[in-house]
Design a protein around this nucleic acid. Structure first.
Lengths: 283, 283
DNA sequence: TCCGGTCGGTACAGTTCCGCACGAAAGCCG
DNA sequence: CGGCTTTCGTGCGGAACTGTACCGACCGGA
């Protein structure tokens, strides 16, 4: 833990990315791809509500490192991913960005806008590129107030995210870099469709709140053990169960709670286990 | 950050407290004290809803270190404090307890039970003794689904807590023990009615996830500076602005967000600033 | 093909915090 | 009052991580 100002080339790189990629998000979804079925949160909403909401979704291309919103900005939209992963980050005064949670197609990003927050409590940044959509917060909020079938998933996902952030808070205080790195890779791998993740050690170090050199050492240990393989901005997961052994308990705890809150959903198709798990099957 | 098993006398002491104090909470509120006016969350609910809820509150004495609920237990009640402070804790596999958030009379404890969670995501422990009440989650949930005037504060407080936990996660990863200790004392002082807090360094060390000896050193620095005075389980705040200087930015950030989410509440008495601040006036 | 920027590996001194341990003083209880 | 427990102060070696720096390898673009 340090409190000195940190302005490495990595942090500056992140800001460059942010500025350059910002507001160029107005790309088209793949034709025929429907966010209301690809995103599991939306898929759990009642058909009647989806009918009303569907015209209001704005498709988005979600390139690596795009910033969906910045901590402190007015909270105007809610985002949904069909593929990929978003990091929820806290920006500290010295410019450091620290990850407190991740969201994939199992959830929603920016629900704070529905909860009465004027400004976003996090910065949302794409860590695994994909596709998605956004909707104006007011429209979704109206539908939520109108339909218990919308309110219920909102509350459940909020709860799941809260549990994840809580576990992260404890994890940051108590677990080693090695354990937290393994946990992060598992969570990202769950939400990726590829075993190869587009990640530099530099960005990983920012997410975890440690030095880039520290990640190099920890990642090498995992590579020596055969759990991952690293190559210039691409990290491949080779052995999930190996990672699970190295990882701290927080991975299992968070995954279990997310599954419980999504699987309990009475709206899930009966007899289907599609809601169970995140992207990948339970094991 | 460590990952070795830790079973100090302190952790064992906590467990003793928990067992002994558990389930002896069925004491009476001071006659004439009404939880629906003392607790700011409840005070912001519409009178009509309070009318219906009032018969269902069960008054509670909240002695130091009482455990309201244990992480993983079925989530059955929501708790409200008229005075005092509750810590929300994560229990890790090695028995460590780590604080991820605090709640006083400005909020509610255990809202997860309203959000569809089957089991509590935190352990709730009284850190500043006081009085309060609990209500069955089902009753409050029904009222929430019936009245937007109840739903709105629930969403707002959930959001405020989420922001607090997020900031804590970043803080744990990035700020020094010294900074975090000052922050904790400020947050506790905001929620106490006395300048003297009933805290041992042992418990403080658990909350912050560090060694007891580490707290001794950091607390001594604050004492030398005249910011606090320590005496066998009682710590007195002498100089708030001194603490604010030592504390990290997280104190100001969290306090600001809580105030914004509570003050925005359209239900607050017009012309009153009673909702602003937590227990103490803004300055 | 060469150049410049990015990325990953390595090293080293310094700092913070850990685990452990011991001791002194304060307070409680018989 | 005397013993016991709790609480706090302190010291020491070690582990984890920091800040900084340098270097080689890789990669894209001119």
């Amino acid at each position: 833990m340090r409190s000195t100002t940190r302005r490495t080339e990595l942090a500056r790189a992140a800001e460059r990315y942010e500025r350059s990629r910002r507001n160029n998000a107005e790309a088209e979804l793949v034709p025929g791809e429907d966010i209301t079925t690809s995103n599991r949160f939306l898929a759990s909403l009642p058909g009647e509500s989806l009918q009303r909401l569907r015209p209001h979704f704005h498709p988005l291309d979600l390139p690596l490192r795009m910033v969906l919103f910045e901590m402190g900005d007015p909270a105007e939209h809610v985002f949904f991913m069909a593929r990929g992963m978003t990091s929820l980050l806290i920006r500290l005064e010295d410019g450091a960005l620290l990850e407190v949670g991740v969201v994939g197609r199992e959830g929603a990003v920016g629900l704070a806008a529905l909860m009465g927050a004027r400004s976003a409590p996090h910065t949302g940044m794409i860590q695994i590129p994909g596709k998605g959509a956004r909707i104006e917060a007011g429209i979704l909020r109206d539908e939520m107030l109108r339909s218990a079938g919308v309110l219920d998933p909102v509350l459940r996902w909020t709860q799941a995210l809260n549990a994840q952030v809580s576990q992260t808070a404890a994890c940051n205080a108590h677990h080693t870099l090695q354990e937290r790195l393994a946990r992060w890779l598992l969570m990202a791998h769950d939400r990726a469709e590829d075993d190869a993740l587009p990640l530099t050690q530099d960005f990983l170090s920012m997410m975890l709140g440690v030095r880039r050199a520290g990640v190099t050492v920890a990642a090498n240990v995992l590579q020596q053990a055969g759990a991952i393989s690293y190559r210039r901005g691409r990290i491949a997961v080779l052995d999930r169960s190996g990672l699970e052994e190295v990882s701290c308990e927080c991975y299992a705890m968070v995954t279990r709670q997310i599954r419980a809150l999504l699987a309990d959903d009475g709206i899930a198709e009966p007899g289907s286990n599609a809601i169970v798990g995140i992207n990948r099957p339970p094991r």
